[in-house]
Write a protein that binds this DNA or RNA. Structure first.
Lengths: 248, 248
DNA sequence: CGCATCATTGAACAAAATCAAGCGAGGTGG
DNA sequence: CCACCTCGCTTGATTTTGTTCAATGATGCG
């Protein structure tokens, strides 16, 4: 949490919010004026702990984060994944105590923005306030979709669905190839996100490969049959609310 | 959707928001000026359908609502329950297309508030804007908790947890007795909320009874051992963020 | 090279779904 | 008032899905 960064990092935030809402030139300007302090994290390092009362929000610059809860019975539930441009703990602006933790899945760079600065900004720029709110609402929409998946979808559909979602999200920020993307997750982490055991994730992924829907080369996930994968995952991207103009 | 109601209904909203945030006299005044149009619904009737683009929000006056998704495979996932004072579709203010449906679990009375009126109010009263935002964030926190439950808790713990949550929420609006509350859910609906089959819900509830944690008399759920039930459900109410002063 | 992490495999086990009937209380119409 | 019907609860038997345990490969990295 040291140096004061400027251009390329803030722009990530601008691009993200523009993918979600319509911003004016002044809005953009104001965003670029936000004070960021950058910090790096190693894989598996926890950034914000459940129970804490943060005074700042995290903007993901590079890497891959997740939100999770550790449960009394020893299990762990991953509730969301976050890619560059996301602000995973925006909710801490109005929910003072963290009800979950935030951690790095792979080595990541994160920029911290003081709550004060964000609240100021929101007060001065209603469009940005709305965009932030909307961001947290989309968050909620994704939780709902995950809940439906974990509650009512087969493990096969669940895993297919997750791959569809990640593909779309990586595409949106230009981090996907034409035919796939780098999947920075272990099978164990996939299980923790979908409520499955590692062993079962392994077996279902083998099925997905056998069925010609995906292929893996190291950490790279090839989508071999996009239509088939979407169908297998019952995937309809509506819940991502990615159309910024939808707001109108 | 006819008559223009005044006092007792608006006050429900005031009370709810005050349980979540600190309001000034002007804020309260403004809330009481909101235009409401009231409508009744029968049990199992859907109020807002997935895919719709509502221009109003629902304020629950009496009864019990739930949000749910019907899945392609025939299943259904209930994502949340809502009691008098709640605004279950507040997210529609900024997410124009419903990604789920809203329905009445039992006969219910609902007041509709035009989006325009709410957005106006929020623009004029920053504290109310914050309170609304916070309301949707708590919503999200509950989704996360449910996700953890469905993903990683035993069916026994899940059911116990749900009963704990409902007890607390009913208590908060004065709809609970000292030793329990009227549970307006069928075992089938409990299953749809927790990702379990009706049969299994039935068997686990028998266990909860056998273990002396609960008892049922008709629709009334007696809490026989509150400490035990909380422990069985791994229930920690922190995720409900019910302390309005927490915001400070 | 050697260790650590992750992927994979097989076998045994457990949890929960499914299928298929009964049962019982509350409400309705004759 | 009572037969009847419906909806929700309960039960038992069976099957499916997924977990757990315990190794064994594979891969990458210092």
């Amino acid at each position: 949490m040291e140096l004061r960064v400027s251009n390329p990092d803030q722009e990530k935030l601008v691009r993200k919010l523009e993918s979600i809402a319509v911003l004016s030139a002044e809005d953009r300007e104001a965003l670029l004026g936000l004070p960021l302090s950058v910090k790096g994290y190693a894989a598996d390092q926890t950034i914000v702990f459940e129970g804490e009362r943060p005074h700042q929000c995290c903007l993901v610059l590079t890497g891959f984060l997740c939100r999770f809860k550790d449960l009394p019975n020893g299990g762990r539930q991953i509730m969301s994944f976050h890619i560059p441009g996301d602000i995973p703990d925006l909710q801490s602006l109005h929910l003072k105590v963290m009800d979950h933790s935030l951690g790095a899945v792979e080595p990541s760079k994160v920029a911290f923005i003081p709550h004060r600065a964000l609240l100021d900004l929101a007060a001065r720029h209603p469009a940005l306030a709305a965009a932030f709110w909307r961001e947290t609402l989309i968050d909620g929409a994704i939780f709902r979709e995950w809940l439906a998946g974990v509650g009512r979808r087969s493990s096969y559909a669940r895993i297919a669905h997750l791959f569809c979602e990640l593909f779309i999200k990586f595409q949106a920020v230009g981090l996907a190839e034409e035919d796939g993307f780098r999947l920075p997750l272990t099978q164990n982490e996939i299980g923790d996100a979908l409520g499955l055991s590692t062993v079962h994730v392994n077996r279902v992924m083998q099925e997905l490969r056998k069925d010609g829907l995906i292929a893996t080369r190291g950490k790279f996930l090839h989508i071999e049959d996009w239509a088939g994968l979407k169908q297998a995952g019952e995937f309809d991207p509506a819940y991502l609310h990615m159309d910024a103009s939808e707001v109108a």
